[in-house]
Amino acid sequence: MWLRSLARNVAGLSVVGLSLVGLSLGASPSPARAALGRAYSSVESDRSVLGATVQSVSAGAYTVHTLALANRGAVKEFTRPDGVVFAVAWRGPGRPDLRQLLGEHFDTVQAEAAATSGRRLGRPLSVNRSDLMVISGGHPGAFWGVAVIPQLQPAGFSASGLK
């Protein structure tokens, strides 16, 4: 609750760092709501589930919430001025809990993965739809990816901002 009000301030300021006690993975029941396409409060749910610390930085038309993971990897959640999460990016030694981070959109990612057959070829997770775009890659120990809901992107947002 206090996080949400703080975030409202963050959007108008520049930088704020929040160092919170991390919860160990799997030690707490999963909050029901996940981030992508949801309100800012879901970023706090993700932070809790992932046992992360969060730092929020305003980039003008949007705010980037960087969740620092215990394995030195990071998850970035991008919110519009109204607090809605329109993109989630990840990078680090392991692929994070995408079921949590992508919410109902996780099923779309899984359906696309299941649609390929024949030679494995090791093609990374990807979705190219009008209502969801996902790209990813890497190898064990060094993964990256990003998921975006195009319709929710704030005006003037460029994909280069996701890096």
């Binding site: 093609r123 990807s126 890497g138 280069s160």
Partner: peptide, 18 residues
């Protein structure tokens, strides 16, 4: 070869050559 980034082709998002 394959392109792991078929969505934002101009960004070199991954910063990676496998």
């Amino acid at each position: 070869g394959a392109n792991p980034n078929i969505i934002f082709p101009s960004t070199a998002y991954a910063g990676s050559f496998d």
